[in-house]
């Protein structure tokens, strides 16, 4: 950098993230050491990796042009994914209401709260694919396992958001409703619901959008949808069909996002 920039730049910089210089360089050194350690311990077959570029080129050549000739299979898979997403979002939206209220510390009795939180944490910790594989073991291959997987994921996601909103709500408004002698259910519909409803709907719609994204992948372990078709095409090296599927997924997710943004904007 020239001298002009040595005179000026400090003016524009925010304060350093870590003030103590020893700690700062210590962290940097630690990061470098970690990088070296992790790269060293990973079992990497460099010979295999080094042929990656030519293989990638080969793969792309086989991908292009995308092959839409089996469009019926494609449409069926995509439809199944979207239907899985819709059904799971709806069920998740309903189930998340009791779970979300139970997971709010300011509303639920202590044991109920702890149990609900445990459920939310448990279901959020494990990736959808892990849930999917278990549901496939329990109810067999197919869309049902996919629906159940996404029901678990949506319920825990929406109820976590819901619980946070309930915990952050204005306590005064609820107190005033309580002071009129309203029972707990009436407290909910007058003091709590009006405060959290818009966000709840927004989160649910967002989750629908997320479910469309996730529904494209649960099929990889056999839980239905376009993912199943995609995994099959990959294992058969039908890369041109794979690309067609990927393009359709990108388009679908894009549309889902536009739809979700449009609805959420209207909710305000």
């Amino acid at each position: 950098m020239s001298e002009a920039s040595t005179g000026h730049p400090t003016v524009w910089r925010p304060p350093k993230l870590v003030e103590n210089p020893v700690l700062r360089y210590g962290l940097l050194a630690g990061a470098l050491a970690y990088l070296a350690w992790s790269l060293g311990t990973l079992e990497i077959d460099w010979a295999r990796v080094s042929v990656g570029l030519p293989r990638a080129q080969n793969m792309f050549e086989r991908m292009i042009p995308p092959d839409f000739s089996r469009w019926e299979l494609l449409v069926r898979g995509v439809t199944e994914s979207v239907l899985i997403a819709f059904a799971a979002s709806f069920a998740g939206m309903i189930l998340a209401v009791p779970l979300g209220l139970a997971a709010a510390v300011n509303l639920a009795p202590r044991p109920v709260y702890l149990f609900a939180r445990l459920l939310v944490i448990l279901s959020r910790t494990f990736h959808e694919i892990i849930w999917a594989i278990f549901f496939v073991k329990i109810v067999g291959f197919g869309a049902l396992a996919g629906v159940l997987t996404l029901v678990v994921a949506s319920t825990s996601f929406i109820s976590k958001m819901l619980a946070e909103d309930v915990e952050n709500m204005n306590a005064g408004q609820a107190e005033a409703v309580r002071a009129t002698g309203a029972s707990f259910p009436k407290l909910l519909i007058y003091g709590v619901v009006p405060q959290i409803l818009p966000r709840y709907l927004g989160v649910s719609i967002y989750r629908l959008d997320a479910n469309i994204r996730h529904s494209t992948v649960v099929g990889i372990v056999g839980a239905g949808g376009i993912g199943q078709v995609l995994a099959a095409s990959f294992s058969r090296y039908d890369y041109d069909f794979s690309l067609a599927i990927l393009l359709v997924i990108i388009g679908l997710v894009f549309l889902g996002e536009i739809f979700s943004n449009w609805i959420r904007k209207r909710l305000r």
């Binding site: 990973l42 079992e43 990497i44 077959d45 295999r48 990796v49 990656g52 293989r55 990638a56 793969m59 694919i129 994204r213 996730h214 494209t216 992948v217 990889i220 993912g227 995609l230 995994a231 990959f234 890369y239 990927l246 997924i249 990108i250 679908l252 997710v253 894009f254």
Partner: peptide
């Protein structure tokens, strides 16, 4: 958009085809 639309596991399918199975 493309990066976000394709799930990590699907990306993994692609990269396994390129680099072979393993952490890379």
């Amino acid at each position: 958009v493309a990066s976000r639309s394709i799930n990590t596991v699907v990306w993994a399918l692609i990269f396994v085809a390129i680099f072979g199975p393993g952490p890379v």
